[in-house]
Amino acid sequence: MTENAPANDVMVKAEGVHKYFGRLHILRGIDLEVRSGQVMCVIGPSGSGKSTFLRCINHLEKIDAGRLWVDGHLVGYRQRGDKLHEMHEKEVAAQRRDIGMVFQRFNLFPHMTALQNIMEAPVRVKGEPRQVVRERALGLLDQVGLSEKVDSYPSQLSGGQQQRVAIARALAMEPKLMLFDEPTSALDPELVGDVLDVMRRLAEDGMTMVVVTHEMGFAREVGDSLVFMDGGVVVEEGDPREVLTEPQHERTQNFLSKVL
């Protein structure tokens, strides 16, 4: 298997990834590659396995077959000779530090202020000095346009503001890769723009991103590649502008005719 290990500039590589929930076959052989600094957008009907695939990338779900690499390392396993060894919980946690994740429902810690939310992991997980982390957290809050919300609790913030804090929280760990699972789907329409702006700037700064989204405008302008998933497989992949205007497959055409 080592001969298939990804090239140096590949951040995420999936090869024949399968996932079952009990007897349900959810992912049916996913092959994908995301290069460093690139933004891959993933679209597809509800239940097609987009979230599941994203969760496999940081080992929130275990894959049942295939291989998945992030930054050249197998996710959740170590290869010794031709045998795979499951990683210990501690090693899995260490691997996740470098992968930021943003959820549809924000999942901020409600008992902590915005600043505490952002500082928690760098202080507790990486053991960085509080003062250093605090400076960085304040900078990140400023970057997402929320410097006046430092001491607000999540319940005192709008959905859009919560999602921007959640992005700042993930960025505080200085990840190499950011995963977004429908980050704007739970937001009122007028709040979507602020969150997308933050993500757009992140992409411009060279962050590698995998974004599950229904925002076709964002996919077209920011995405370097677009993946259409359906029924647990990648149906079509290509340049977003081409896929969106001239989809090759009938299932893609059907889906796009419903959402555009």
């Binding site: 919980e89 946690a93 691997q95 999942n107 997980v125 990486k126 993930a170």
Partner: peptide
Amino acid sequence: EASQALGMRR
């Protein structure tokens, strides 16, 4: 899940 994604231990 959010805590796990940040690399926190059980």
